Simulated scan of single mutants.
Amino acid sequence: MAFKTKNIFINLFVKDVSKSTHFFKELGFEHNPQFSDETTTCVIISDNIFAMIMNEEKFKGFTKKEVPDTTTSSEVILSFSVDSRNQVDELVNKALSLGGKTFTEPQDHGFMYIWGFQDLDGHLWEAAYMDESALNQE
Results as ranks from 00 to 15, higher is better:
N93Y: 05
A134L: 13
K4I: 15
P68F: 06
V92I: 03
A128F: 02
F103Q: 11
D131G: 02
G28F: 06
D108E: 05
S18I: 15
T104N: 02
E75R: 08
S73I: 09
S84Q: 08
F35W: 01
T63R: 03
S84D: 01
S46P: 05
I10L: 13
G110Q: 04
V14K: 06
G99K: 06
F50E: 06
I8T: 15
F117G: 00
G61Y: 09
T41M: 09
F3N: 13
F80L: 10
D89I: 11
D37W: 00
F59T: 08
F117T: 05
N32P: 02
A128N: 03
L98T: 02
N86C: 07
K65G: 07
S20G: 07
F103P: 03
E26C: 11
V67D: 04
L12G: 02
F23W: 00
K6D: 14
S74P: 02
Q107H: 14
I44V: 13
A2T: 12
M52V: 01
F62M: 10
S133T: 12
V17W: 10
T70R: 14
N55E: 07
T39Q: 15
K64H: 10
G99T: 08
S36L: 12
L124G: 04
I114N: 11
D16G: 10
F117H: 05
D37P: 00
